[in-house]
Design a protein around this nucleic acid. Structure first.
Length: 221
DNA sequence: CTGTGGATTTGCT
DNA sequence: GCAAATCCACAGG
């Protein structure tokens, strides 16, 4: 029996993540991030906002990416095979989660910036220190909020294969249609601030940051 | 609504 | 030594 049973939809194949992050990112919108915690709680959210971070093989390279200066112990997952979770700690108290893409040996990853909660909402509220029934956007709108809601940590989740049926952390496709994606510049960085590498589901209430998005629409996925 | 500052650790230079 | 892909509380308009 799979570690995650009764999870909705189908597991995404590794080939899904073999492309460059700027191309895979919009495809990831609408997919489900599913986590099973140690107590057996199933926690799931729909991916509604992501950002692409490019590997150093790109010309020009992406100075905002953790891989900009080459492999280090921290970022080795991003240089490994596609479809693996890169979870890192930031500002001493938070975590952010990415998924590696590009073929093994090339770097590239996608930062998950916001989810729309789908399953395990009470548990998410508890993990976030919020009362049951809190607004959805308070649970998982923001890269560190979503990690806190799903209980994702570097020690517990960095390096996990999100395409394995044995993994406690998966990305699944339940057929939810996302007609198009909105693309804007990335948020919260100080370098390469003009690259249009943030992708979001237009109009979704759980998208983080300014409610008014100023990007251009990309063609239907 | 906007802006500001503090918390607090890690990882690299 | 210090910057960091954040969040939250609080002040002011």
């Amino acid at each position: 029996m799979a570690i995650i049973s009764r999870a909705p939809g189908r597991l995404l194949p590794r080939t899904f993540f073999e492309g460059p992050p700027e191309r895979v990112s919009p495809l990831l919108l609408g997919k489900l991030l599913v986590a099973k915690d140690r107590r057996g709680n199933l926690l799931a959210g729909r991916i509604v906002e992501v950002e692409a971070y490019l590997g150093p093989h790109n010309l020009p390279p992406d100075p905002a990416a953790h891989t900009y200066r080459g492999p280090t112990p921290r970022n080795q997952v991003i240089f490994g095979p596609p479809g693996h979770a890169y979870v890192y700690s930031i500002y001493g108290r938070y975590f952010c989660m990415n998924i590696s893409c590009e073929p093994e040996g090339l770097a590239g990853c996608i930062l998950l910036r916001a989810l729309e909660p789908v399953a395990g909402l009470d548990r998410m509220a508890k993990n976030r220190g919020l009362p049951s029934g809190s607004a959805l956007r308070l649970l998982t709108s923001g890269p560190s909020r979503l990690c806190q809601a799903l209980g994702l940590t570097r020690l517990g989740h960095n390096g996990l294969d999100v395409t394995s049926n044995k993994s406690p952390l998966q990305v699944r496709d339940d057929g939810y249609p996302v007609p198009d994606a909105l693309v804007t510049v990335r948020i919260g960085i100080k370098r390469a601030v003009d690259l249009p590498l943030r992708f979001a589901v237009p109009g979704n209430k759980c998208v983080s940051g300014p409610t008014k998005l100023t990007g251009v629409r990309v063609p239907p996925i």
